[in-house]
Design a protein around this nucleic acid. Structure first.
Length: 450
RNA sequence: GUGAGUGUAGCUCAGUGGUAGAGCUCCGGAUUGUGGAUCCGGCUGUCGCGGGUUCGAUCCCCGUCACUCACCCCA
Protein backbone atom coordinates (compact mmCIF):
# COMPACT_ATOMS: atom_id res chain seq x y z
CA UNK A 1 0.00 0.00 0.00
CA UNK A 2 1.44 3.32 -1.05
CA UNK A 3 1.35 5.73 1.88
CA UNK A 4 2.49 8.89 0.11
CA UNK A 5 0.05 11.75 0.21
CA UNK A 6 -1.58 12.41 -3.17
CA UNK A 7 0.65 14.03 -5.75
CA UNK A 8 1.47 17.63 -5.01
CA UNK A 9 -0.20 17.44 -1.57
CA UNK A 10 1.67 17.35 1.71
CA UNK A 11 1.31 16.15 5.28
CA UNK A 12 2.38 18.71 7.84
CA UNK A 13 4.14 17.12 10.83
CA UNK A 14 4.19 19.00 14.15
CA UNK A 15 7.35 20.98 13.40
CA UNK A 16 5.94 22.01 10.01
CA UNK A 17 2.68 23.13 11.58
CA UNK A 18 4.49 25.24 14.19
CA UNK A 19 6.40 27.04 11.45
CA UNK A 20 3.29 27.58 9.37
CA UNK A 21 1.32 28.86 12.32
CA UNK A 22 4.11 31.25 13.22
CA UNK A 23 4.14 32.83 9.76
CA UNK A 24 0.34 32.87 9.49
CA UNK A 25 0.19 34.50 12.92
CA UNK A 26 2.48 37.35 11.85
CA UNK A 27 0.50 37.85 8.64
CA UNK A 28 -2.87 37.96 10.41
CA UNK A 29 -1.48 40.25 13.09
CA UNK A 30 -0.16 42.80 10.60
CA UNK A 31 -3.28 42.71 8.47
CA UNK A 32 -5.40 43.36 11.54
CA UNK A 33 -3.21 46.33 12.36
CA UNK A 34 -4.32 47.77 9.04
CA UNK A 35 -7.99 47.19 9.82
CA UNK A 36 -8.61 44.13 7.67
CA UNK A 37 -11.22 41.61 8.83
CA UNK A 38 -11.02 37.81 8.53
CA UNK A 39 -13.03 35.89 5.94
CA UNK A 40 -13.33 32.19 5.11
CA UNK A 41 -15.09 30.63 2.13
CA UNK A 42 -15.78 27.01 1.09
CA UNK A 43 -13.10 24.85 -0.49
CA UNK A 44 -15.57 24.08 -3.26
CA UNK A 45 -17.29 26.53 -5.60
CA UNK A 46 -19.87 26.00 -8.31
CA UNK A 47 -17.79 25.44 -11.40
CA UNK A 48 -19.27 28.32 -13.37
CA UNK A 49 -18.12 30.68 -10.62
CA UNK A 50 -14.53 29.85 -11.50
CA UNK A 51 -14.50 29.17 -15.24
CA UNK A 52 -13.49 32.06 -17.46
CA UNK A 53 -11.97 34.18 -14.70
CA UNK A 54 -8.32 33.23 -15.01
CA UNK A 55 -7.71 32.90 -18.74
CA UNK A 56 -7.43 29.77 -20.82
CA UNK A 57 -4.45 28.33 -18.94
CA UNK A 58 -6.22 28.93 -15.65
CA UNK A 59 -9.32 27.04 -16.73
CA UNK A 60 -7.16 24.03 -17.57
CA UNK A 61 -5.63 23.99 -14.08
CA UNK A 62 -8.91 24.05 -12.14
CA UNK A 63 -9.55 20.85 -10.16
CA UNK A 64 -13.04 19.75 -11.20
CA UNK A 65 -15.40 17.57 -9.19
CA UNK A 66 -17.61 15.11 -11.04
CA UNK A 67 -21.33 15.61 -10.75
CA UNK A 68 -22.98 13.03 -8.52
CA UNK A 69 -24.79 10.20 -10.29
CA UNK A 70 -24.60 10.53 -14.04
CA UNK A 71 -21.39 12.57 -13.81
CA UNK A 72 -19.43 9.41 -13.03
CA UNK A 73 -20.25 8.14 -16.53
CA UNK A 74 -20.29 11.36 -18.51
CA UNK A 75 -17.33 13.09 -16.83
CA UNK A 76 -19.51 16.14 -16.34
CA UNK A 77 -18.43 18.41 -13.48
CA UNK A 78 -20.64 20.86 -11.62
CA UNK A 79 -18.26 21.77 -8.78
CA UNK A 80 -14.60 22.67 -8.52
CA UNK A 81 -11.96 23.31 -5.84
CA UNK A 82 -11.19 27.00 -5.51
CA UNK A 83 -8.24 28.16 -7.63
CA UNK A 84 -7.51 31.32 -5.68
CA UNK A 85 -9.07 33.47 -2.98
CA UNK A 86 -9.83 36.51 -5.11
CA UNK A 87 -12.68 35.11 -7.19
CA UNK A 88 -14.46 33.67 -4.12
CA UNK A 89 -14.12 37.11 -2.53
CA UNK A 90 -15.70 38.73 -5.57
CA UNK A 91 -18.58 36.26 -5.30
CA UNK A 92 -18.99 37.02 -1.57
CA UNK A 93 -18.99 40.76 -2.20
CA UNK A 94 -21.64 40.37 -4.89
CA UNK A 95 -23.75 38.13 -2.65
CA UNK A 96 -23.59 40.17 0.59
CA UNK A 97 -23.06 43.65 -0.78
CA UNK A 98 -25.94 45.09 1.19
CA UNK A 99 -24.60 43.94 4.55
CA UNK A 100 -20.87 44.51 3.99
CA UNK A 101 -19.28 47.86 4.79
CA UNK A 102 -18.92 50.39 2.00
CA UNK A 103 -15.16 49.83 2.04
CA UNK A 104 -14.87 46.12 2.77
CA UNK A 105 -11.33 45.15 3.81
CA UNK A 106 -10.71 41.48 4.35
CA UNK A 107 -7.82 39.08 4.79
CA UNK A 108 -8.08 35.36 4.13
CA UNK A 109 -5.59 32.55 4.75
CA UNK A 110 -6.79 29.29 3.24
CA UNK A 111 -5.62 26.55 0.88
CA UNK A 112 -6.24 26.71 -2.85
CA UNK A 113 -5.85 23.93 -5.43
CA UNK A 114 -4.34 23.82 -8.89
CA UNK A 115 -4.07 20.76 -11.15
CA UNK A 116 -0.52 21.74 -12.00
CA UNK A 117 2.58 19.61 -12.21
CA UNK A 118 4.43 19.92 -8.88
CA UNK A 119 7.90 21.43 -8.81
CA UNK A 120 10.24 23.11 -6.36
CA UNK A 121 8.14 25.48 -4.25
CA UNK A 122 5.04 24.61 -6.25
CA UNK A 123 2.27 22.32 -5.05
CA UNK A 124 -1.21 21.24 -6.03
CA UNK A 125 -2.55 22.29 -2.64
CA UNK A 126 -1.05 25.42 -1.16
CA UNK A 127 -1.98 28.28 1.11
CA UNK A 128 -2.50 31.81 -0.04
CA UNK A 129 -2.62 34.75 2.34
CA UNK A 130 -4.78 37.34 0.61
CA UNK A 131 -5.57 40.86 1.65
CA UNK A 132 -8.00 42.94 -0.42
CA UNK A 133 -9.79 46.25 -0.16
CA UNK A 134 -13.12 46.65 -1.93
CA UNK A 135 -14.99 49.79 -2.93
CA UNK A 136 -12.40 52.50 -3.56
CA UNK A 137 -10.47 53.64 -6.63
CA UNK A 138 -8.05 55.70 -4.55
CA UNK A 139 -4.34 54.87 -4.69
CA UNK A 140 -4.38 55.08 -0.90
CA UNK A 141 -5.59 51.48 -1.18
CA UNK A 142 -2.56 50.45 -3.23
CA UNK A 143 -0.22 52.25 -0.85
CA UNK A 144 -1.74 50.62 2.24
CA UNK A 145 -1.69 47.15 0.69
CA UNK A 146 1.96 47.47 -0.29
CA UNK A 147 2.79 48.88 3.09
CA UNK A 148 1.07 45.99 4.87
CA UNK A 149 2.86 43.40 2.74
CA UNK A 150 6.15 45.17 3.45
CA UNK A 151 5.44 45.14 7.17
CA UNK A 152 4.77 41.39 7.06
CA UNK A 153 8.07 40.69 5.35
CA UNK A 154 9.99 42.98 7.70
CA UNK A 155 8.42 41.38 10.77
CA UNK A 156 9.39 37.95 9.44
CA UNK A 157 12.99 39.13 9.10
CA UNK A 158 13.28 39.83 5.38
CA UNK A 159 15.50 42.81 4.60
CA UNK A 160 16.25 42.69 0.88
CA UNK A 161 12.83 42.20 -0.66
CA UNK A 162 11.58 44.24 -3.60
CA UNK A 163 8.02 45.37 -4.23
CA UNK A 164 7.79 45.57 -8.01
CA UNK A 165 5.13 47.93 -9.29
CA UNK A 166 3.63 48.47 -12.72
CA UNK A 167 0.26 49.26 -14.30
CA UNK A 168 -1.80 47.47 -16.93
CA UNK A 169 -2.77 50.79 -18.49
CA UNK A 170 0.86 51.87 -18.75
CA UNK A 171 1.76 48.52 -20.29
CA UNK A 172 -0.97 48.99 -22.91
CA UNK A 173 0.35 52.48 -23.61
CA UNK A 174 3.90 51.17 -24.03
CA UNK A 175 2.74 48.53 -26.47
CA UNK A 176 0.68 51.10 -28.37
CA UNK A 177 3.73 53.33 -28.61
CA UNK A 178 5.74 50.40 -29.93
CA UNK A 179 3.14 49.80 -32.61
CA UNK A 180 2.06 46.43 -31.24
CA UNK A 181 -1.53 45.82 -32.39
CA UNK A 182 -4.09 45.23 -29.65
CA UNK A 183 -4.58 41.65 -30.81
CA UNK A 184 -0.93 40.85 -30.03
CA UNK A 185 -0.59 42.75 -26.77
CA UNK A 186 -1.52 39.80 -24.58
CA UNK A 187 1.18 37.69 -26.22
CA UNK A 188 3.69 40.51 -25.94
CA UNK A 189 3.01 40.90 -22.20
CA UNK A 190 3.83 37.26 -21.53
CA UNK A 191 7.17 37.70 -23.31
CA UNK A 192 8.02 40.99 -21.59
CA UNK A 193 7.32 39.52 -18.18
CA UNK A 194 10.29 37.20 -18.62
CA UNK A 195 12.86 39.98 -18.97
CA UNK A 196 14.51 39.37 -15.62
CA UNK A 197 14.47 35.63 -16.25
CA UNK A 198 15.65 35.13 -19.83
CA UNK A 199 17.36 38.45 -20.49
CA UNK A 200 17.15 40.86 -23.39
CA UNK A 201 18.00 38.36 -26.14
CA UNK A 202 15.55 35.84 -24.74
CA UNK A 203 12.71 38.35 -24.74
CA UNK A 204 13.61 39.48 -28.25
CA UNK A 205 13.35 35.88 -29.43
CA UNK A 206 10.03 35.37 -27.63
CA UNK A 207 8.58 38.56 -29.06
CA UNK A 208 9.58 37.56 -32.58
CA UNK A 209 8.16 34.09 -32.07
CA UNK A 210 4.88 35.58 -30.92
CA UNK A 211 4.62 37.75 -34.02
CA UNK A 212 5.53 41.15 -32.58
CA UNK A 213 7.11 43.35 -35.30
CA UNK A 214 10.87 43.76 -34.94
CA UNK A 215 10.78 47.55 -34.91
CA UNK A 216 8.41 47.71 -31.94
CA UNK A 217 10.26 44.97 -30.07
CA UNK A 218 13.55 46.77 -30.57
CA UNK A 219 12.12 50.03 -29.27
CA UNK A 220 10.76 48.36 -26.13
CA UNK A 221 13.97 46.53 -25.39
CA UNK A 222 15.95 49.72 -25.87
CA UNK A 223 13.67 51.39 -23.35
CA UNK A 224 14.17 48.61 -20.80
CA UNK A 225 17.93 48.79 -21.23
CA UNK A 226 17.88 52.49 -20.44
CA UNK A 227 15.73 51.82 -17.36
CA UNK A 228 18.16 49.13 -16.20
CA UNK A 229 21.05 51.57 -16.64
CA UNK A 230 19.17 54.17 -14.64
CA UNK A 231 18.65 51.64 -11.89
CA UNK A 232 22.37 50.98 -11.65
CA UNK A 233 23.06 54.71 -11.42
CA UNK A 234 20.42 55.36 -8.76
CA UNK A 235 20.96 52.25 -6.69
CA UNK A 236 21.14 54.08 -3.39
CA UNK A 237 18.00 56.15 -3.93
CA UNK A 238 14.96 54.13 -4.97
CA UNK A 239 12.61 57.10 -4.87
CA UNK A 240 14.80 59.05 -7.30
CA UNK A 241 14.93 55.97 -9.51
CA UNK A 242 11.14 55.57 -9.45
CA UNK A 243 10.61 59.21 -10.36
CA UNK A 244 13.15 58.89 -13.14
CA UNK A 245 11.30 55.86 -14.55
CA UNK A 246 8.03 57.76 -14.41
CA UNK A 247 9.56 60.57 -16.43
CA UNK A 248 10.95 58.12 -18.98
CA UNK A 249 7.56 56.43 -19.26
CA UNK A 250 5.85 59.75 -19.77
CA UNK A 251 8.24 60.56 -22.59
CA UNK A 252 7.75 57.12 -24.14
CA UNK A 253 3.96 57.35 -24.03
CA UNK A 254 4.04 60.90 -25.40
CA UNK A 255 1.12 62.15 -23.33
CA UNK A 256 -1.02 59.03 -23.73
CA UNK A 257 -2.53 57.24 -20.70
CA UNK A 258 -2.27 60.18 -18.28
CA UNK A 259 -4.57 58.50 -15.71
CA UNK A 260 -2.52 55.33 -15.47
CA UNK A 261 0.75 57.25 -15.14
CA UNK A 262 -0.85 59.52 -12.57
CA UNK A 263 -1.85 56.49 -10.48
CA UNK A 264 1.70 55.20 -10.46
CA UNK A 265 2.94 58.64 -9.46
CA UNK A 266 0.44 58.66 -6.61
CA UNK A 267 1.59 55.30 -5.27
CA UNK A 268 5.22 56.35 -5.34
CA UNK A 269 4.38 59.66 -3.65
CA UNK A 270 2.12 58.12 -0.98
CA UNK A 271 4.65 55.51 0.07
CA UNK A 272 7.35 58.16 0.35
CA UNK A 273 11.06 57.58 0.61
CA UNK A 274 11.25 55.65 3.90
CA UNK A 275 9.86 52.39 5.25
CA UNK A 276 8.10 50.33 2.61
CA UNK A 277 8.80 53.02 0.01
CA UNK A 278 12.48 52.11 0.20
CA UNK A 279 11.61 48.67 -1.21
CA UNK A 280 9.37 49.94 -4.00
CA UNK A 281 10.73 49.57 -7.55
CA UNK A 282 8.82 50.68 -10.56
CA UNK A 283 9.33 47.95 -13.14
CA UNK A 284 7.88 48.59 -16.61
CA UNK A 285 8.52 44.96 -17.62
CA UNK A 286 6.27 43.52 -14.90
CA UNK A 287 3.13 42.07 -16.53
CA UNK A 288 1.59 39.20 -14.47
CA UNK A 289 -0.46 36.45 -15.99
CA UNK A 290 -3.95 36.64 -14.54
CA UNK A 291 -6.40 38.22 -16.92
CA UNK A 292 -8.57 40.10 -14.42
CA UNK A 293 -6.12 42.89 -13.50
CA UNK A 294 -7.09 46.34 -14.75
CA UNK A 295 -4.77 48.87 -13.06
CA UNK A 296 -1.76 48.77 -10.77
CA UNK A 297 -0.04 45.39 -10.49
CA UNK A 298 2.53 44.22 -7.94
CA UNK A 299 4.90 41.39 -7.39
CA UNK A 300 7.12 40.63 -4.41
CA UNK A 301 10.63 39.44 -5.19
CA UNK A 302 13.56 38.33 -3.06
CA UNK A 303 17.05 37.50 -4.30
CA UNK A 304 17.80 33.83 -5.02
CA UNK A 305 14.20 32.79 -5.64
CA UNK A 306 13.13 32.22 -9.22
CA UNK A 307 9.42 32.70 -8.58
CA UNK A 308 7.77 35.43 -6.55
CA UNK A 309 6.79 35.51 -2.89
CA UNK A 310 3.47 37.05 -3.82
CA UNK A 311 1.67 39.34 -6.15
CA UNK A 312 -1.50 41.22 -6.80
CA UNK A 313 -3.09 44.23 -8.31
CA UNK A 314 -6.23 46.16 -9.03
CA UNK A 315 -9.22 44.37 -10.59
CA UNK A 316 -12.06 46.84 -11.02
CA UNK A 317 -14.17 44.61 -13.31
CA UNK A 318 -14.16 41.23 -11.60
CA UNK A 319 -16.91 41.83 -9.06
CA UNK A 320 -19.03 43.25 -11.86
CA UNK A 321 -18.93 39.85 -13.54
CA UNK A 322 -21.00 38.55 -10.61
CA UNK A 323 -22.97 41.65 -9.72
CA UNK A 324 -23.67 43.42 -12.98
CA UNK A 325 -22.51 46.80 -11.71
CA UNK A 326 -18.83 47.47 -11.27
CA UNK A 327 -17.19 47.63 -7.87
CA UNK A 328 -13.53 48.65 -7.68
CA UNK A 329 -11.14 46.35 -5.83
CA UNK A 330 -7.46 45.78 -5.21
CA UNK A 331 -5.50 43.12 -3.37
CA UNK A 332 -2.26 41.33 -2.68
CA UNK A 333 -1.64 37.62 -2.19
CA UNK A 334 1.33 36.29 -0.23
CA UNK A 335 2.47 32.75 -1.04
CA UNK A 336 2.83 31.01 2.30
CA UNK A 337 4.71 28.01 0.87
CA UNK A 338 7.34 30.12 -0.83
CA UNK A 339 7.83 32.30 2.23
CA UNK A 340 8.38 29.10 4.22
CA UNK A 341 10.81 27.71 1.64
CA UNK A 342 12.95 30.85 1.71
CA UNK A 343 12.80 31.22 5.49
CA UNK A 344 13.77 27.57 5.88
CA UNK A 345 16.74 27.90 3.52
CA UNK A 346 17.97 30.99 5.35
CA UNK A 347 17.33 29.75 8.88
CA UNK A 348 14.98 32.65 9.63
CA UNK A 349 12.71 30.92 12.14
CA UNK A 350 13.04 32.02 15.76
CA UNK A 351 14.57 29.53 18.19
CA UNK A 352 11.58 29.47 20.49
CA UNK A 353 9.60 27.66 17.79
CA UNK A 354 11.81 24.74 18.89
CA UNK A 355 10.68 21.23 19.07
CA UNK A 356 9.87 20.91 22.77
CA UNK A 357 6.22 19.87 23.02
CA UNK A 358 6.22 20.37 26.80
CA UNK A 359 8.09 22.24 29.53
CA UNK A 360 8.34 19.22 31.79
CA UNK A 361 7.78 15.48 31.71
CA UNK A 362 6.43 13.68 34.78
CA UNK A 363 7.97 10.24 35.12
CA UNK A 364 6.07 7.23 36.45
CA UNK A 365 7.83 5.60 39.39
CA UNK A 366 5.69 2.48 39.45
CA UNK A 367 2.07 1.51 38.94
CA UNK A 368 1.14 2.42 42.52
CA UNK A 369 2.46 5.93 41.97
CA UNK A 370 0.39 6.63 38.85
CA UNK A 371 -2.48 8.49 40.58
CA UNK A 372 -0.03 10.77 42.36
CA UNK A 373 1.90 11.41 39.14
CA UNK A 374 -1.31 12.47 37.43
CA UNK A 375 -2.11 14.77 40.36
CA UNK A 376 1.34 16.34 40.09
CA UNK A 377 0.83 16.86 36.36
CA UNK A 378 -2.50 18.55 37.02
CA UNK A 379 -0.91 20.87 39.60
CA UNK A 380 1.84 21.89 37.19
CA UNK A 381 -0.68 22.50 34.41
CA UNK A 382 -2.67 24.72 36.75
CA UNK A 383 0.54 26.67 37.26
CA UNK A 384 0.66 27.30 33.52
CA UNK A 385 3.19 24.70 32.42
CA UNK A 386 2.93 22.36 29.48
CA UNK A 387 3.19 18.94 31.05
CA UNK A 388 3.64 15.56 29.44
CA UNK A 389 3.13 12.38 31.47
CA UNK A 390 5.19 9.37 30.46
CA UNK A 391 2.46 6.88 29.57
CA UNK A 392 3.89 3.72 31.15
CA UNK A 393 5.73 2.57 34.22
CA UNK A 394 9.21 1.92 32.84
CA UNK A 395 12.84 2.04 33.79
CA UNK A 396 13.79 5.57 34.76
CA UNK A 397 16.59 5.50 32.22
CA UNK A 398 14.09 4.83 29.46
CA UNK A 399 11.90 7.65 30.62
CA UNK A 400 14.79 10.12 30.80
CA UNK A 401 16.00 9.05 27.40
CA UNK A 402 12.55 9.59 25.95
CA UNK A 403 12.26 13.08 27.46
CA UNK A 404 15.70 13.92 26.14
CA UNK A 405 14.89 12.68 22.64
CA UNK A 406 11.79 14.88 22.61
CA UNK A 407 13.80 17.91 23.77
CA UNK A 408 11.66 18.32 26.87
CA UNK A 409 13.85 20.43 29.17
CA UNK A 410 12.83 19.08 32.61
CA UNK A 411 11.73 15.83 34.23
CA UNK A 412 10.26 15.19 37.64
CA UNK A 413 10.81 12.08 39.74
CA UNK A 414 8.75 11.09 42.76
CA UNK A 415 10.23 7.87 44.16
CA UNK A 416 9.59 6.25 47.50
CA UNK A 417 11.99 8.66 49.26
CA UNK A 418 10.40 11.77 47.80
CA UNK A 419 6.88 10.52 48.40
CA UNK A 420 7.68 9.91 52.07
CA UNK A 421 9.13 13.40 52.46
CA UNK A 422 6.54 15.20 50.33
CA UNK A 423 9.22 16.34 47.89
CA UNK A 424 9.74 16.21 44.12
CA UNK A 425 13.05 15.77 42.34
CA UNK A 426 13.35 18.12 39.38
CA UNK A 427 16.10 17.57 36.85
CA UNK A 428 17.19 20.06 34.20
CA UNK A 429 18.14 17.90 31.24
CA UNK A 430 20.18 20.60 29.56
CA UNK A 431 22.55 21.22 32.50
CA UNK A 432 22.19 17.89 34.28
CA UNK A 433 21.47 19.67 37.56
CA UNK A 434 18.81 18.26 39.80
CA UNK A 435 17.35 19.23 43.15
CA UNK A 436 14.65 18.14 45.54
CA UNK A 437 12.03 20.76 46.23
CA UNK A 438 8.74 21.03 48.02
CA UNK A 439 5.80 20.06 45.89
CA UNK A 440 4.43 23.60 45.70
CA UNK A 441 7.78 24.95 44.48
CA UNK A 442 8.14 22.68 41.44
CA UNK A 443 6.53 25.05 38.94
CA UNK A 444 8.66 27.94 40.19
CA UNK A 445 11.87 25.95 39.78
CA UNK A 446 11.00 24.97 36.22
CA UNK A 447 9.83 28.40 35.14
CA UNK A 448 8.31 28.98 31.79
CA UNK A 449 10.48 29.47 28.71
CA UNK A 450 9.40 31.92 26.07
C1' G B 1 0.09 19.21 -21.68
C1' U B 2 5.91 18.69 -23.21
C1' G B 3 11.03 16.97 -21.99
C1' A B 4 14.85 14.71 -18.84
C1' G B 5 16.42 11.97 -14.52
C1' U B 6 15.58 8.63 -10.35
C1' G B 7 12.83 4.23 -7.99
C1' U B 8 17.13 -1.13 -3.34
C1' A B 9 15.76 -1.64 4.83
C1' G B 10 11.81 3.28 8.65
C1' C B 11 15.56 7.37 6.48
C1' U B 12 20.08 8.58 3.29
C1' C B 13 22.29 5.77 -0.26
C1' A B 14 26.11 1.81 -2.22
C1' G B 15 26.04 -2.61 -5.27
C1' U B 16 26.37 -7.06 -8.81
C1' G B 17 23.63 -11.40 -14.99
C1' G B 18 24.44 -16.36 -10.06
C1' U B 19 19.37 -15.97 -3.78
C1' A B 20 21.58 -8.01 -1.23
C1' G B 21 25.09 -4.25 1.74
C1' A B 22 26.73 0.39 4.67
C1' G B 23 25.63 4.58 7.70
C1' C B 24 21.78 6.67 10.54
C1' U B 25 17.18 5.51 13.11
C1' C B 26 14.87 1.85 16.10
C1' C B 27 15.15 -2.23 19.92
C1' G B 28 18.03 -4.85 23.86
C1' G B 29 22.41 -4.90 27.05
C1' A B 30 26.87 -2.68 29.67
C1' U B 31 23.70 0.86 33.67
C1' U B 32 17.15 -2.62 38.65
C1' G B 33 16.88 5.83 41.07
C1' U B 34 19.06 9.19 35.97
C1' G B 35 19.17 10.88 29.46
C1' G B 36 22.78 12.94 25.72
C1' A B 37 28.86 10.36 24.80
C1' U B 38 31.08 5.38 24.14
C1' C B 39 31.07 0.06 23.52
C1' C B 40 28.54 -4.78 22.53
C1' G B 41 24.43 -7.31 20.37
C1' G B 42 19.77 -7.46 17.41
C1' C B 43 15.35 -6.52 13.93
C1' U B 44 13.72 -5.05 9.12
C1' G B 45 13.61 -5.95 2.23
C1' U B 46 7.55 -8.93 -2.70
C1' C B 47 15.42 -4.60 -4.94
C1' G B 48 8.24 0.40 -7.43
C1' C B 49 4.66 -2.80 -10.38
C1' G B 50 3.67 -5.95 -14.92
C1' G B 51 5.67 -8.43 -18.91
C1' G B 52 9.98 -10.02 -22.06
C1' U B 53 15.22 -11.97 -22.97
C1' U B 54 18.06 -15.76 -20.11
C1' C B 55 19.60 -22.08 -17.30
C1' G B 56 19.16 -17.87 -13.89
C1' A B 57 17.11 -10.72 -13.78
C1' U B 58 17.59 -6.29 -8.36
C1' C B 59 20.98 -5.59 -12.79
C1' C B 60 19.53 -6.06 -19.79
C1' C B 61 14.82 -4.78 -22.91
C1' C B 62 9.57 -3.05 -23.23
C1' G B 63 5.46 -1.12 -20.76
C1' U B 64 3.36 1.11 -16.53
C1' C B 65 3.07 3.84 -12.02
C1' A B 66 5.36 7.08 -8.51
C1' C B 67 8.74 10.81 -7.27
C1' U B 68 12.30 14.79 -8.65
C1' C B 69 13.93 18.62 -11.93
C1' A B 70 12.99 21.80 -16.09
C1' C B 71 9.38 24.00 -19.84
C1' C B 72 4.38 26.15 -19.92
C1' C B 73 1.98 28.86 -16.28
C1' C B 74 2.00 30.48 -11.44
C1' A B 75 2.15 31.59 -5.10
Amino acid sequence: MNTNPARGMRDFLPEDVRRRQYVIGVIADVYQQYGFEPLETPAVENIETLLGKYGEEGDRLIFKILKRGEGAETGQADLALRYDLTVPLARVVAEYRATLPKFFKRYQVQPVWRADRPQKGRFREFYQCDVDAIGSRSMIVEAELLSAAGDVLSRLGFTSYTLRLNHRGVLAGMLDAAGVPASLQGEALVALDKLDKVGREGVAAELAQRGVPDAGAGMLLEFFSSVAAAQRDAKADPTAFNRDVLDRLEALLGGARPDALGELRDVVRLLGPGGTGAHLRLDPSLARGLSYYTGAIFEIAVPDLAGSLGGGGRYDNLIGMFLGSEVPACGISLGLERILVVMGERGMFPDNLGKAPADVMVTIWNLDAVPDALRLAAELRSAGLRVEVYPEADKLGKQFKYASSRAIPHVTVVGDDEAAAGLVTVKDLATGEQRRVARGDVAGVIGRPG
